[in-house]
Amino acid sequence: MIGLRYFARKGAMFLLTLWAAVTLNFIIPRLMPGSPVQATLARLAAGGQTVTEATKRAIEIQLGLPHSSLWTQYLDYLVNISRLRFGMTYSITDESVAHAILAAAPWTLVLVGTSTVIAFVVGTLLGVYAGWRRQTRVDSVVTVSSTFFSAFPPFFLGLLLLYFLGFKYHMFPLTGGYTPGLVPQLTLSFLGNAVYHSILPAVTLVVTSLAGWVLGMRNNMINTLGEDYVLFAEANGLRNRTIALLYVARNALLPNVTGFGLALGAVIGGSVLVESIFGYPGIGSLLLLAVDNRDYPLMQAIFLLITVSMLVTIFLVDLLYGLLDPRVREA
């Protein structure tokens, strides 16, 4: 009944995709024209930085040495990432890549996690309502505004909010994840300060990703409304609320859940830009810092982290889907 086969198949798929993504992360820098290793070392030396052994090692792990075989490099790479050894970053003095990421990750996790969940729940509910009451005034208002906001690049909406609510009306702070001078700690006052700082970035992410959920769910609702089981439920005189929620929305939700992982990719992409605009101390800002400094080890490690966390989330959503749709459990 529980359909172990479904979960086993999804698990195997997850591992295979994980391996492919990790390997791709190894291949990408080696496909690039020129030798990033030489370029990086030259750039570091020119910048007057001392190239420590650790830095050099980090670059070698991530980008490969010209004189060792590709296979040895690959094995080294696998061993190192399995032990979370990413070497030293040279964007931040005396900091290892792993530490830098560890410090930034919670910020992004909370921001992106919360925004995604809020956008999914609110967007899906709005889509259910608009689809059920289609061709009404509420439906057209919801659909038209969702369409409009789905055309917004997240950074543009972020800049507008920053300008009007932050700069013009001083309702929100202009930059940062917390007021400078505060020490990050788990106290109520610090958390309150952090939440206050994250409102604008979160609103930006929610509004720009909300639209996709609304329109997607509305579409699914309209498609499901034409199903025979909905017609039959009406013929049997079920209550409107039962039909709307348990017959239409419950089935219309399934394709939206499948799409969750892909939507997450968009939100993560959006968060990179949003973090940069709001100076939010998360993974996105760190990635851009790495890009600005041509800090390839940090860049590669962040990309790997983003990819792996997406894969894990998609895997979890797949498992959830197995519980939501009785048909796939045995399939």
């Binding site: 990719g265 992409g269 990179v272 890009v291 390839y296 997406m310």
Partner: peptide
């Protein structure tokens, strides 16, 4: 695989490598 790779971060990484 291409579908689950985060689009914008991937583009950023590639664009950062290209001169």
């Amino acid at each position: 695989l291409a579908l689950v790779l985060p689009g914008l971060p991937l583009m950023i990484v590639i664009a950062a490598y290209l001169r």
